[in-house]
Amino acid sequence: MGKHVLLIEDELNIIEAIRFLLSREGWQVDTHNNGTDAAQITRELKPDLVVLDVMLPGKSGFDILEELRSHEETQDLPVLMLTARGQSRDREMAEKAGVNRFMTKPFSNSEVLTAVRDLLYVHQQKA
């Protein structure tokens, strides 16, 4: 049973915070800080869950999500999306692209942890 999460985020302080939270829960946390090759990295690392920012250099989170959903090995991968652009349009776009959970920054740490646990549990039930 893997507890491997990939965090795609460009803001160093936020990476630091999430890494701290998840590693304390026993997750293996990998990070990546730009959008351009994020989908490819995901396929290579085969994480159990992806935490994805929207505003990334190179490629937006929506585009990365679409790319993930279009590949067979990542089409069912649980994705938690975080955005600082708190507009309802963004949530719609994310759901259309096939997001599993969408959260607006700033988030509470417990919410993030709960969301990650839920996503992983549901995913494992399905599998």
Partner: peptide
Amino acid sequence: FLSQISHELRTPMTSIRAFSEILRDT
């Protein structure tokens, strides 16, 4: 701009909230 300003304001606030919760809860 609205997206951007939101992003610009929320990003530092995210860090501040996350770390202050860490300091509080850990």
